[in-house]
Write a protein that binds this DNA or RNA. Structure first.
Lengths: 231, 231
DNA sequence: CATTAAATATTGAAAATTCAATATTTTTAA
DNA sequence: TTAAAAATATTGAATTTTCAATATTTAATG
């Protein structure tokens, strides 16, 4: 099966990275205590507020980093991540409870690795630790860049940034099947659903994008970049 | 001198942490290649876009993590940090250029440690690496919490969050000499200067705070917390 | 396959925020 | 010490954004 082959590749990507730093014996230790799980669209992989007992390695699929605010019941999407990637942000760094949830926005394959097993290996092997932290920190970088976008730009620039991110970092192309709802796009761009819908309608009229249902095609990416720049 | 004594304590704090993981010999190696510098209010310690050649350890003073946007010339303050703390966020994790600048908002004493020396030690010593990464990741957490505040709350809630943070994490009390200008408060709360000024005037009338020049006293911190909660 | 729920879409009013203009006070630098 | 610059403060108009109401389309569920 194609999917399993891909999963194998992704997994071997993680294995490959790991084996540069730890022994095959040590990697087997990780494998032995890891669980291979599938999550359906919408399911929560790691939950905000829970104890960080596991580190997740995303083999296939797309996930969102979702923060839920008790105060007003609103969600904020900090960033999106597509496989293959180690999902360390929420708990690789902190001893505290998970800052946010990690939720599948498409069907996902995930390896859940026991934190304490991995941490013991990291403590024994500084090179492995440094490498893994550097990989994981990429997601922080993305969250911060999204913060900057939200802080400095108004809705149209922010939505442009979301679509540029989707095109460049998630779907790797200008045509894709959007796995986010308009509500989720709004939670990512930090604006109302109406803003997203109106902006997309406007862009369609201006022939910047074509969008029908979930099918998106970015027709004029330079114009999107310009909108992002203006803010 | 009192200042030097304090600096000595802060420094020995870092030394103390380090010596739990590395040898005295190895720490001497850090010391040997480190520079002890003083920065005046407003001076840049590490600059956005530069190569991350040094890791900074803040011995005394307060710094801001400042992001400058080319597009519109605006600054955003990601978070504030007070001594003693390792300022790893900008470059402890990334090989890339510094994501943001670190700027003194009060006179500071800083140890600049050569990245490659420290990294060699981290690679040799996984326990040290894990410990240092966990300490440094605190600043990411704060940036993300600030993001959440900006994304979900409106100006009054955000400004309340800024003052709660200043009181709880920077000045450790309800009376303090504010080292930020109104413009900087606005850059931290991601709103206009007018919003900050009007909100502070309003709070003064409502006897939530007393503010004259730089002298701030929070009279009713519970009300501030309530404003923060409402958003 | 029918019913319900959820998602998408549009509109105008209401609210929040920024912008522009201007004045006063404080700080900085010559 | 004084002139210039920066910071603080206030106000109303203009703009942006959200909220509320409502309709249509699509997806989910028994």
């Amino acid at each position: 099966m194609v999917l399993n082959e891909m999963a194998e590749n992704y997994y071997s990507g993680f294995k490959k990275i790991s084996l540069q730093f730890i022994t095959a014996e040590e990697f087997k230790q990780i494998e032995k205590t890891s669980v291979h799980l599938r999550f359906k669209k919408g399911e929560t992989i790691l939950k905000q507020g829970h104890q960080p007992t596991h580190i997740a390695f995303l083999q296939s699929g797309i996930v969102k980093f979702n923060f839920f605010s008790e105060g007003n019941g609103k969600n904020t999407i900090l960033t999106l991540v597509s496989a293959p990637k180690i999902l360390g942000g929420a708990n690789l760094f902190y001893k505290d409870n998970n800052l946010f949830s990690i939720v599948a926005v498409e069907d996902c394959e995930v390896f859940l690795i026991e934190s304490n097993i991995l941490f013991e290996l990291l403590k024994k092997n500084g090179r492995f630790a440094v490498a893994l932290f550097q990989i994981a920190s990429d997601m922080f970088k993305q969250s911060i860049l999204n913060f900057i976008s939200v802080a400095n730009k108004q809705k149209e620039g922010r939505i442009a940034d979301v679509f540029l991110y989707l095109s460049g970092e998630i779907y790797f192309g200008t045509s894709f099947n959007l796995s986010l709802t308009r509500k989720e796009l709004a939670e990512f761009a930090c604006c109302s659903v109406e803003n997203v819908i109106m902006t997309l309608s406007k862009w369609q009229q201006e022939e910047i994008i074509t969008i029908s249902g979930k099918k998106v095609e970015i027709k004029d990416i330079n114009k999107l970049k310009q909108i992002s720049k203006i803010g």
